[in-house]
Write a protein that binds this DNA or RNA. Structure first.
Lengths: 219, 219
DNA sequence: CGGTAGATTGATGAGAGTCAAGGGGAGTGG
DNA sequence: CCACTCCCCTTGACTCTCATCAATCTACCG
């Protein structure tokens, strides 16, 4: 536990660096309604943040990959829950000090620090903002084909081989991220296969035969 | 022009406070692809940020009301354009100094300052993040009815009278924000009227007869 | 009194949701 | 080593919502 205190402009804010934590697939890291006093850095694996509605529907807000930092929220409670998609390792940070219940009540949470994380907090927040906007754009798009193309390209960008995407999440996860049903996700992938855009190496491994064609549907 | 220089953790960043600017309805404040060296504070009126696709479709990312600060982006260029919805007054701030092309290259853009804005920049970014996530949630919802209900409640919260919403934007704007068509927006409002949820005082003024019924469809 | 832009309403069709049934692969146990 | 099982994925048939195309209506302004 390393206590860090920084000048937050409108006051002093501090947080502690927690231990490295391991999570099994589908294990919850924090839940909807939990106190938003922690934020998370992903070291390995993939984490999903999601929102469950009272009628059982689920919407996935984002998938977080190694290097991502997420979980800072404006309110007192987390409006989203976070769960491991596959085996995952994270570092958990905990807000401390005068501004309780989240980083934003007292002003700016951090500035300069030696361990490499805090001075990038604002950058991470901005990256999360850009991704949320991008996600909203994706969901606003009309067709399932466009959404799926955007999704594949998103993961293509994270892959060592841009043309071979390995999906760590289930069809249900993809559906909840794209605002579709499992059946539609499956059918759309089949259609893409028929049209020669992709090859289904296995259910979770997809070869992007025509990146350019996919990019054309994506704006 | 007031030059402000602040310690940005990983370096010094400065920005200038620009003049108060007036915009007529539909006038552009900045365009998609413009250099992202400015951010905006809304003083009066409503601003929309939107993204246009090559095929002419338009998606509205957000409506910004007085007090909102928007336009900081991670990249070098604005990925969205900003336009006045109605007559609007804003203050434009411009990034200066070592970290060119946006606030996020050199670290944290601002900390302490006397004029009330800078120390809240992080808070504004976080608010924008929360709103983008909320928007994504809205777009992920299935039915037009739910989307419309969420939209009305969003503006109800901004109104002096919670039960009387005055819409400053056109049906087309609403449609582009909700990922629907103008016709569906219109039909959905008519349906709500039929069901006694709302009254259409005029095209742009809506009385919310049953806030509770609307809230029930909104989660 | 037209003229125009925005809003509403109608008819129709395409695309995604729903319900239901059928693969397929990984792991388990005999 | 094979059979069984479970879960995930795929496919099929049908329904329903929303997009599309088109016409009408309304308010505002010259």
């Amino acid at each position: 536990m390393n206590l860090t205190t920084v000048n937050a402009g409108a006051g002093w804010v501090s947080f502690t660096t927690g231990p490295v934590l391991y999570y099994a697939p589908d294990q919850e890291i924090y839940g909807q309604g939990d106190t938003a006093d922690t934020f998370i850095k992903v070291m390995a694996g993939v984490i999903r943040t999601c929102h469950c509605l009272h009628d059982g529907r689920r919407q996935i807000d984002a998938f977080h990959v190694p290097g991502d930092v997420f979980g800072f929220e404006f309110g007192i409670e987390h409006s989203l829950s976070a769960e491991a998609v596959n085996e995952a390792t994270v570092i958990s940070y905990r807000w401390r000090g005068p501004s309780r219940g989240g980083p934003c009540r007292g002003g700016l949470p951090s500035i300069a620090n030696a361990d490499g994380l805090p001075e990038r907090l604002f950058g991470h927040a901005m990256r999360n903002l850009a991704r949320a906007q991008e996600h909203a754009r994706l969901l606003g798009r009309s067709s399932a084909l466009e959404k799926m193309a955007a999704f594949l390209l998103e993961w293509s960008a994270h892959s060592p081989d841009r043309k071979l995407v390995t999906l760590v999440m289930s069809r249900q996860d993809i559906a909840d991220y794209l605002g579709l049903t499992v059946e539609t996700v499956s059918r759309t992938l089949s259609q893409m296969k028929q049209e020669g855009l992709i090859q289904l190496v296995s259910a979770r491994q997809i070869r992007l035969t025509s990146l350019t064609a996919l990019r054309e549907m994506n704006d």
